[in-house]
Design a protein around this nucleic acid. Structure first.
Lengths: 177, 177
DNA sequence: ACCCTCATGTAACTTGTTACATGATTGA
DNA sequence: TCAATCATGTAACAAGTTACATGAGGGT
């Protein structure tokens, strides 16, 4: 499906940047729904360049250090625009190792199961609180321009998702205690 | 991380079955948190047999057709028991192509965005209703034995997850209309 | 001097998907 | 006899991770 391709095209469509910059983007906002390491990004950039969807110019930082600043081409923009409108079937439910363990919970003692749930709850709480703080930076009732919509909405979805996960864990906990 | 390995060990720990049976399990309850095709399962079964974690005996169906009925070994049971108790760091937020499209929504017209959201809402609703029906088969307030806990809890988590997704889509919708 | 960040890549491997390939059994 | 399901596998490819590998820039 070449999803990484479109994640990169979408980012470069905002403004030109280097592979390193892209890599950092995947560690910021994009973590709420995608991720990629630099070892996957650099080869993909090469491929997209070969396909004439992006191009780069070399900039010099300091005296020697070269960096490639990539930008999207018209061909790339057209490809992206077309991809954005595709209405696919639902993807399968995402994989979740913790749930796999819960599914086989009959092989644990009640104490062990209880401990697993508490541990997961603690970790999810931290994540939820972090997301909630980010979200509150937008203020109580955000009035969104189209440019903020994307950023805000994916953060909101991540927060609601973690909230639902915590609620589920609370129910699990109540069945075990 | 060999997660497929433990999914298979967990299933075989319940009772012996064939690769074909395992494949069907991944299409049933396990879809709520894992999936695998037969082309991945058969090689893994071979590997697990080589590692002495499972074993098989050949049964004949009808006159000719051979099937391999796999069962877990003591070594496999020990490996599974140890794995179940591992408390890992949270996995990264699962990937979601629809959210990637929403993130780049600034490149769509309001009408296009609206259509995308409605389409996704319709598909998610169907899934949610299906899950809810499955869940209601357990009755209003289920009294769970340890053997049902796994089955019920993963279904509950999938339902709550879809519910949260729908709530998010409703908010998205309200920003667009 | 030292450390952190910036910056770019490759190699080996694991995981997962799609397509190819075959044939038996069961019930309508 | 025909179709759906049962049953098992492989090959080629795509996607993703971990480790290897190198070196400059900037601040203390």
């Amino acid at each position: 499906m070449r999803t990484l391709k479109y994640a990169i095209l979408g980012l470069l469509n905002r403004h030109p940047m280097t592979g390193y910059d892209l890599s950092k983007e995947f560690d910021k906002d994009l973590t709420y729904f995608w991720h990629a390491k630099h070892s996957q990004i650099y080869p993909e950039l090469k491929k997209l360049t070969d396909e004439n969807l992006i191009q780069f110019e070399v900039q010099i930082t300091g005296e020697i250090l070269e960096k490639k600043v990539y930008s999207i081409t018209d061909l790339g923009k057209a490809d992206l625009a077309q991809w954005l409108l595709i209405e696919e079937d639902l993807e399968p439910t995402p994989k979740d190792v913790f749930k796999l363990r819960m599914y086989f919970a009959e092989n644990m003692s009640k104490e062990q199961l209880h401990h697993m749930i508490e541990d997961q709850y603690a970790k999810r709480s931290l994540k939820y609180n972090f997301l909630k703080e980010r979200l509150e930076e937008y203020g109580e009732s955000p009035t969104l321009g189209m440019s903020d919509f994307g950023d805000y909405t994916v953060l909101l979805s991540a927060t609601m998702r973690e909230n639902a996960y915590l609620e589920w864990l609370e129910i699990c906990r109540s069945y075990v205690s």
